[in-house]
Design a protein around this nucleic acid. Structure first.
Lengths: 131, 131, 131, 131
DNA sequence: GTGGTCTAGACCACG
DNA sequence: GTGGTCTAGACCACA
């Protein structure tokens, strides 16, 4: 089953967090064609936000063509455009990240610092590309 | 010089992005005690947002005690609480991340997919802690 | 100035009527690049619906790429993809329709009957294409 | 035989589309006193909607007095109030519309644009009446 | 004062 | 009982 997670301190609107999580899950293969998203009312209950907010997120996903809402039945994932990477390289990358995270945590970095390092690294690469 | 970067598609309010970037820069040692932040007008111009928005970000940083605005002179970084990790482990972690990013990009992942992997890994660790 | 019109008896959700009217206005050249749509609160007042409903319509138009909402300023029409027909043929067709409508009304048909004739004619053509 | 047609992108609820189509057909003389509407199951199958939805449409038509359901036999059209226009002027108007539609299509207008022109013309007339 | 988001609660169309 | 829409009213980010 798919589980949502809201970070209320990030400044990102909750409905957008839901949208991004579904997008990522589809991208990474956690959600596939035909899978049913959790019911709107379920999500609203588990993450403690208003059902309308969840509905707004689902509506946007539908407009993006990622899912289809069927009244009386639920909301279902549409055919994904294409599998981007092979499962092997995917799990390899995943393992690499996990060991790195382990080292970072062992060194005493909290989540905030880890995120800072990550975004700094990503942006540095971007700047090099520009230059 | 310190450079700001606004991601208008992330959903995070621009003023918060500025705040977070300064916080991260201080945390990672890019900004140290006595460094001057860019002028409000400069920032407003380079990232194309309203000066009021930049001023709001600086105001919040001042309220957090991270910086001090000196009218007519600029905004300066206060004494940082303490660097928690040694520079050696820090650069080691940084290098590790960069090589990982290189592998990910070589495998054909775009920024979106990389972010997805990263947040998934971080959240997975969280879930394990909870369980 | 652009004026909205809500037909509350048609069964079409009000927000969709607004969306369709803007789409048509852009398509017919009544709204051009840079034009400002009426303020959300204005529309809500003139057509007597909730501001949120108008906002929902504008949001959808923004997602379709037709307009751009600028907080503090208003909502503006984006560059139109392309002018589809020459103004000459356009006005010619317009005149033709008007004379036809005049004949229909002179014959005693009310709006309901006129709409019935129109949709019947359009659908008939469709069926012929299918067959 | 009478054929229904559902436009799922119009925003009009399917059951209402059925109701409107029967109303129009009666108004234009396509359906006359004693004609039998298609069976609910047939309609549900051909237009791919739930039988309950069709039943709801038929129920509403019965409440309007347009048709009468005879259990085990079918649903039949009641006596129509009166044909308001002569068949001659009717077919004349119909021909006029068809030639106009032909010109519009020849000019390169798609269905969306044609509808836009039509509703614009109708509404313009309305505004003139108000003014 | 502008658009954007969230909440609360109601009603409807559909299965 | 499902998703979809509307209303009412509040708060926030932005110009």
């Amino acid at each position: 089953m798919f589980v949502f997670r809201i970070d209320s301190g990030s400044g990102v609107p909750p409905y957008l967090q839901l949208v991004q999580q579904v997008r990522q899950a589809v991208l990474l293969g956690f959600l596939k064609h035909g899978d049913r998203l959790p019911l709107i009312r379920e999500v609203a209950e588990t993450v403690a936000i208003n059902p309308n907010t969840v509905a707004k997120a689902y509506r946007q996903l539908e407009q993006e063509g990622l899912v289809t809402g069927r009244p009386g039945t639920g909301t279902f994932v549409n055919e994904t455009p294409a599998a981007t990477i092979s499962p092997a390289t995917y799990t390899s990358l995943q393992r690499g990240l996990e060991t790195w995270l382990g080292r970072a945590r062992a060194a005493g970095l909290d989540e905030q610092a880890i995120n800072a390092l990550f975004t700094a690294a990503v942006n540095q690469a971007k700047n090099e590309n520009i230059a």
